[in-house]
């Protein structure tokens, strides 16, 4: 069934892909890792064919914590029914007195909008309609749930949700990352996941084949495949483990 052109395409594909990824990552690096605001809006407007709906990962970072990584542009927040293998459960399930689909959090053109279905507040004010969330906003759901919404990095559209009221997320995590294109892990305060003991920054971003990462210094990536020592970009499929002298984390599908 393969035509010659297809065969040709296959042969050059790895190199093409590497080039493409390299270009993409260098652009991201320019705009995200450095405080260079020349081409700021580009981060949010890079067109991506990657369909990330409903895709979630768990990032287990040694000494730091476990983070739920949500790649979708829209997540449903609601009560978890306790079972981890719940296909039609909410994207962000909480062990709390909420309805199953209590609110929807949508990322649209670099902004986050909360659309409540049940009782909700933003910064203490009750909201019924879609509300734009600002950095540092406190989302109240039901009687007791309080979520803190933060966008630590000014140049990235990714956001972080932390449960401030002590409720458990399902699966259990210390924080929820709503990943737009990229997430920064590192020691700086503007990192999406702050890892105080790390000596380097690490960038996670969406690529055509899944998650990719690159770093300012070489990291060892092992997991389903053999270990490689690289600065990236390198694909990190579920089950991968990323190590360097000061850091160590694993990623798995939630």
């Amino acid at each position: 069934m393969f035509c010659p052109t297809d065969r040709h395409a296959l042969a050059v594909a790895p190199r093409q892909q590497a080039e493409k990824v390299g270009r993409l990552s260098s652009r991201l690096r320019e705009t995200v890792l450095l405080d260079n605001s020349l081409e700021t809006p580009r981060v949010a407007t890079i067109p991506l064919q990657y369909d990330s709906r409903g895709e979630r990962y768990l990032v287990w970072i040694d000494r730091v914590g476990g983070y739920l990584l949500c790649l979708a542009d829209e997540i449903v927040i609601g009560q978890a029914n306790g079972s981890l293998a719940d296909a039609d459960g909410p994207d962000l399930g909480l062990q709390a007195d909420l309805s199953r689909r209590h609110a929807t959090l949508t990322r649209r053109e670099g902004q986050y909008v909360l659309s409540p279905r049940g009782a909700a507040t933003v910064d203490g004010r009750p909201v019924q309609d879609a509300t734009v969330l600002n950095h540092g906003a406190e989302i109240g759901l039901g009687d007791a749930v309080r979520l803190r919404f933060e966008r630590p990095h000014a140049l990235s559209a990714s956001a972080r949700l932390t449960v401030a009221s002590g409720h458990r997320t399902v699966p259990s995590a210390d924080g929820v990352l709503l990943m737009a294109e990229s997430c920064v892990l590192g020691p700086q305060p503007h990192s999406h996941v702050r890892c105080p003991q790390w000596h380097q920054d690490l960038l996670l971003y969406k690529g055509t084949g899944g998650l990719l990462c690159r770093s300012s210094r070489p990291v060892s990536v092992s997991g389903p495949g053999p270990a490689v020592l690289t600065e990236g970009p390198v694909a990190i499929p579920p089950g991968a483990r990323i190590e360097a002298e000061s850091l160590c984390f694993s990623i798995e599908r939630a």
Binding site: V64, P152, A164, S165, G175, R194
Partner: peptide
């Protein structure tokens, strides 16, 4: 504080 920062969060 109810909003006590989790590891990795900025001080609330």
């Amino acid at each position: 504080p109810v909003a006590a920062a989790l590891p990795g969060a900025t001080p609330a």
